[in-house]
Design a protein around this nucleic acid. Structure first.
Lengths: 192, 192
DNA sequence: CAAAAGCATTGATTTGAATCAATGTGCTTT
DNA sequence: AAAGCACATTGATTCAAATCAATGCTTTTG
């Protein structure tokens, strides 16, 4: 059940059997049906979720009730409203399941205790957030400097598996475009 | 000379005198004149720089030789091309000084040794990157979902000191706008 | 199974930002 | 002090994406 999580963990910090067992005591599993919420805007985000199976999205809703996807979470990725999780402020994002999913759940107290007691867990956390930072910087750079066409190409190249599993209008949302515009961009690209 | 750096460090992880002295042995100071480069695109980024005094910017240059500012670094902030620093790949950003500046320099080997030997330094690093991640996520959310006017207002509210010290066309660049557009937006806002 | 909902596409029109161009102003720099 | 440059503003025009609207297709669901 925790296979992917520990695979991921081990690839970043080598753990002994005992260490793994110890960490396991802090984790819980959660299944989410398609369309179910993991987090709703306004609630405080209590957990970090590692996606063992399935797909989720984090998104905000603006005053015109347009959804803006800030992050996808597929197998092997972590998803949360980190700001809310860390500060205890109400979440500004919603997180829900795009497919039936299985999550490894780390509660706030578990996270804090692990950070305090297991140096390797802190290293793991540091490496994770660093990876997330670099991925986001890449996305930001591309938004600021590249054309929409290039951005779409980059997205497809970087995340082909997302493009296959997620409806197109959500990719448009992730890119900050309308579905119509993305459709036309795809058309333009394919006619080359 | 290292005042601000240690102030910052201490605010995140409480250090003893000895620990501070130990860390100091890993640091060097560097002064940069206005317009001098800390890093040029294509070179490998060898350092993380903490800004003690002055102001820097990290930016990329696109095929039409337009500059796109990805980050400002003022007093108390850290600036680097982290991807290049961590991977050893050539940098995709340029970093230069907007004013005469003083930097606390952490070399790659220093960074690695400190991470390995001083748990508190790792914690410091983790907290720093987490803060940077949250700031960037905020920026990204605003780009994807808010109007340019709101985005400019947010920027001014969040970083009033930057707005005061940095030429307007650089703020436009940071926002992914042309200077003309930002000028018009300011006009629109002020006429309310 | 039929109805409804969700999704992608296409077309016509509007809108907002980019581009091109010119001017004014204040700083450097010599 | 004069010349040159960097910067901000403003105007006119172009261009790209949003919006509004309609259609057909597929997937859910009652």
């Amino acid at each position: 059940m925790y296979n992917l999580f520990f695979q991921n963990l081990n690839s970043k910090v080598q753990l002994t059997e005992e260490e793994q067992e110890q960490i396991k005591t802090y984790l819980t599993l959660k299944k989410l049906r398609k369309k179910q919420y993991l987090l709703q805007e306004g609630d405080v985000c209590k957990v970090i979720a590692f996606v063992e199976k399935g797909a989720l999205r984090a998104y905000s809703v603006d005053e015109n009730s347009n959804e803006h996807i800030i992050q996808f979470g597929l197998e092997g990725w972590t998803i949360s409203d980190l700001y809310s999780f860390l500060t205890g402020e109400p979440a500004t994002y919603n997180i829900d399941a795009l497919e039936d999913s299985e999550l490894v759940i780390i509660s706030k107290s578990a996270h804090e205790e692990l950070l305090q007691t297991m140096p390797k867990y802190e290293t793991f956390t540091r490496l994770n957030i660093t990876g997330a930072y670099l991925a986001m910087q890449r996305r930001l750079t591309s938004i600021i400097s590249a054309s929409v066409e290039e951005r779409y190409q980059d997205f497809i190249n970087l995340y082909p598996h997302i493009a296959q599993r997620v409806p197109q209008h959500m990719i448009a949302s992730y890119m900050g475009l309308t579905p119509e515009t993305l459709s036309r961009i795809r058309k333009r690209i394919s006619s080359k």
